[in-house]
Amino acid sequence: MNGPIRRVAVVGAGLVGSGWAIVFARAGLDVAIFDESEAIRAAVLDRIAASLDDMRGAGLVADPQPILGRLRVAASLEEAVGEADYVQESVFERVEAKRAISLAIDAVMRPEAVVGSSSSGIPASAFTEECRNRARFLVVHPVNPPHLVPLVELVPAPWTDPELLPWLRGEMARTGQAPIVVNREIEGFILNRLQGALLNEAWALFEDGYASAADIDLTVSHGLGLRWSFMGPFETIDLNAPGGIDDYARRLGPLYHSIARSRTDPHPWSDDLAARAAEERRRALPLKDLPERSAWRDRRLIALAVHRRSQDS
């Protein structure tokens, strides 16, 4: 049985990897960061420091310095991974890239270490089969940015040691994340299958001219999203009928079945359709302003995290 995680390696130091580094260092763990890009390695601590300053301003962290003090940038993969209890891999979302880095980690990891991949939809069985320590590999998929949105999906490969799941669920909860277990592999896992269902309907409504992209966004941000920020779909409908969830199913099940049957021939998101949506979005937000708007999103997530913390307490 694994003991508590004390030393972490973060492999891949982009937006997701740097967010993971904050998660682990904020929880008091020692974190070694490695990225194959020298430029990314040189910039990652400054990016993390800027995020921590925003979090300090909102009261999410008291002092960034102890967190930064638990972070170091490693010069090689072996230096980062060799002593780690847990490795969080966050490289490019392509099977070949995942397979290559998994084999590289496998060659230098401790046999008792555990490796989680930040894969968004590629199952671990697609890239860990050839690893000698493959029983210690699984998908550990966060939401971006992981230091502000706590959900984590734990998805084992068929050969993942099943005893790792309850242990890692507890360790992720100890770092402040909200882990769920996906009992077996499925493309897209849970989060992206739910998100995909909404996205596919949003694209279809937009393509058919029922509403603008802005009004579809407004429907979620000022409608569905308000409840979904603190409860899920099953609890939502349980509270939306006098007799609870089974009453709701009787009342509205036929409507949702009819809606589902109307989408039995889904279309791919065509280039023309994406161009139409992009034209509307670029009128609302020029491409050069995307980074500023992303920073605004993170500040809003920080404010929401502060509010949720106050309500939980």
Rank of each mutant, 00 (worst) to 15 (best):
A9I: 10
P111I: 15
V306C: 09
L218A: 14
V149W: 01
L205F: 07
A75K: 11
E130Y: 04
S118W: 03
D46F: 05
A42V: 05
I259R: 02
A75H: 09
E36Q: 13
G225T: 07
D271C: 00
R299L: 00
R26N: 15
S118M: 06
G121E: 12
D298V: 03
V220T: 10
A305P: 00
R70Y: 10
R134A: 05
G232D: 09
L29G: 03
A74W: 02
P4L: 12
L165T: 04
D85Q: 08
G253M: 13
A241Y: 02
E36F: 04
R193F: 12
N2G: 00
L151R: 00
R309G: 14
N144V: 14
P268H: 06
R263C: 07
L226W: 06
C131D: 10
D106A: 08
R56C: 06
S51V: 01
E36H: 09
I216R: 09
R250Y: 07
D272V: 07
R7I: 07
V81W: 06
R41Y: 05
R283M: 11
A74F: 05
W296K: 04
A124R: 01
F24D: 04
R72I: 10
P291Y: 15
L168I: 08
A213H: 02
V87Q: 03
G69H: 12
V23C: 15
R7L: 07
E280C: 02
A157S: 05
Y210D: 00
A157M: 01
R41W: 03
V95C: 10
A126M: 14
R174F: 09
P156G: 04
R281T: 08
G3K: 06
A13I: 01
V152H: 01
P145C: 11
G69R: 11
L255Q: 08
G196R: 09
A124I: 04
D53W: 02
N192G: 01
G170A: 12
F189L: 13
L224P: 00
G3S: 13
R263G: 00
L255S: 07
A97N: 07
W20P: 01
V81N: 04
R132A: 15
Y86L: 14
D46W: 04
E38V: 12
A84Y: 03
A178S: 05
L52W: 08
R300F: 03
H307E: 15
A25S: 15
D85H: 14
D215V: 07
I40E: 15
Q177R: 03
V155P: 00
L273G: 00
P266N: 12
D289H: 12
R297A: 11
E163G: 09
V87F: 08
G170C: 06
V23T: 11
A62Y: 02
R193M: 11
R297T: 04
L285Y: 14
L205E: 04
V152G: 00
G116N: 08
